[in-house]
Design a binder for these strands. Structure first.
Lengths: 138, 138
DNA sequence: ATAAACCCTGTACCATAGTACGGGGTCAAG
DNA sequence: CTTGACCCCGTACTATGGTACAGGGTTTAT
């Protein structure tokens, strides 16, 4: 099947070529095979993986975390329960993020609604949202 | 009412003192009044604002975006419709994030479920998730 | 067969978001 | 009245996530 040069891959996903090399260096993309003149030949999967990475990044995951997410599916079968555990940790993290985003969304919604008419918005308890974590004494 | 020294503020919210100064420098926290010897005296609101900032950051907002969010509520009444518009843009962004997080969550959930028993997980279409944006030709 | 477009490596540089540190003043308790 | 904890400023350093060359080969279309 078809393979991608680095330029094709970068263009397909909409990232810089240098970024692809950077990801390869840092282990986010596995080192692809090379042709006789040393050109990288990325498999289809690299597109998927790279796209996943960029999307996950926009969701607030660091490259380290993305590396963890990606590694979950590659662990040998023996470590299956370990994978399950890690997946569940990630799920919990994600649930928390979703919850907080919803809260923030509501606050913005309220702000937006209030702003419809000419009422001044001097007092909008917009900030007071997202108050959960790190509340009091350590 | 009570005011906070920089150390108290930092401790209360669980950040480094230097971070507070950094935020002041970059306009995320308004410059607080000083006492006679030049010590910062942060009002209660600084706690709220700082906490908001740290939380929003965990949700994947950059400091620049957080500055935008925070500024929404401070714009003079005249710009009310502008605020509404900006708020709605943010809401849309947040909705997208929530949607993608849910998708990712489902994928992880499936992975986790599959990992319960001794079945090998060689083929888990976990990556293929989050495929929406930046699909084809520009 | 030659120019344009593409790829290689290595190194340097950039922005963002802090963190650390030196040198010095301030305040509170013993 | 001094010692330790706290604060000031300025500057420098760090990690992360890229970007940008320079100097050199390769491929492709004319």
């Amino acid at each position: 099947m078809k393979s991608y040069t680095i330029g094709e891959l970068a263009k397909e996903v909409g990232v810089n070529m240098e970024t692809v090399r950077y990801y390869e260096r840092t282990g986010l993309l596995p080192k692809p095979p090379r042709n006789d003149s040393g050109y990288r030949q990325f498999p289809e999967e690299a597109v998927v993986r790279l796209r996943f990475t960029k999307n996950a990044q926009r969701l607030g995951f660091s490259l380290r975390e993305i590396r963890e997410l990606l590694s979950l599916r590659l662990i040998p079968d023996s470590a299956c329960l370990d994978v399950k555990e890690k997946a569940e940790v990630k799920i919990a993290e994600i649930d928390k993020k979703i919850g907080e985003l919803k809260t923030l969304r509501e606050a913005l919604k309220e702000l937006s609604a209030r702003c419809t008419r000419v009422t001044p918005i001097n007092e909008c308890h917009f900030l007071e949202v997202l108050q959960d974590s790190r509340g009091g004494e350590p």
